[in-house]
Amino acid sequence: MSARETILGRIRDAQTLAPPAPQPIPREYRTGRDLPDDERVELLVDRLVDYKAHVHRCSAAELPGTIARVLDGIGARTAGVPAGLNDSWTSVFGGDVVVDSSDVPAPELSRLDAVVTASTVTCAETGTIFLDGGADQGRRALTLVPDTHVCVVPLDTIEVGVPESLARLVPQRPTTMISGPSATSDIELERVEGVHGPRNLHVVIVDQAVGGGHLP
């Protein structure tokens, strides 16, 4: 008998000992919390800065110029974007805008200087940005391989806490949660950035209530 058959056999034996019907799990989370716009944004900015993310604020009309300034500020010559991102967002950027495709092997994404995406929802309390793989956010690899991620967070997508944020997600969609730039610490507590994703995270908070990826 192979090791695979042994493992599967043990799993089947364990399942016979399980209760006949799954027991309901209580999920009495605190929900429905809200804060005035200014307080919600202030809380989010505090968390993002603590995580060493770069925060920029602008209006919808200023968004293309803000994204261009961020990309120019890091010396970017090429910026990757998901296929569903609004073209106007990168219209002021003077470098090359590369539209991502699933046909592009993930290792080739490392040639991009940065990636620009929208977001689905953001939790102010934890400073966590949620991406669900939508057309204006792209595949997971696109936001993990390039060294810099420029993520747009509209005001109307910022929630106070985790339960409120999760309520706006579709469980069946692939979800990526971002809390600051990628970093880890080894047993000696030596911080290393860029191990599991971008070393640099720029969050552009749009001060108006707008739909992600579809600004006028």
Rank of each mutant, 00 (worst) to 15 (best):
L71H: 03
S88G: 12
L43E: 11
E39L: 10
E62N: 08
I129W: 07
W89M: 13
A118L: 02
I25A: 14
G80I: 10
P64R: 04
P24G: 03
I205K: 10
L189W: 12
E188D: 12
Q137P: 00
L189S: 14
E108G: 05
P19F: 15
D207A: 13
G213I: 07
A68H: 08
D103W: 10
P36A: 09
D38C: 15
P181S: 07
A76K: 02
I25G: 11
R77V: 10
D156C: 08
D96I: 15
P198V: 11
G194H: 07
E193A: 15
G73T: 04
L63C: 10
V121G: 00
G84C: 04
G94S: 13
A167S: 08
Q137G: 01
D72P: 04
P24A: 09
P154N: 06
T90G: 02
P154H: 10
D113M: 10
E159N: 00
A114R: 01
P171W: 07
G212H: 05
V116P: 03
R77W: 06
A60C: 13
V160A: 15
E39F: 08
C58K: 09
V162R: 00
R47N: 13
G94C: 09
P105C: 04
V206N: 01
R57G: 02
S110Y: 11
P24N: 08
L17H: 11
T143I: 10
D132M: 00
A167K: 01
D100K: 00
V204F: 08
V55T: 01
I11F: 09
P24M: 10
I178M: 04
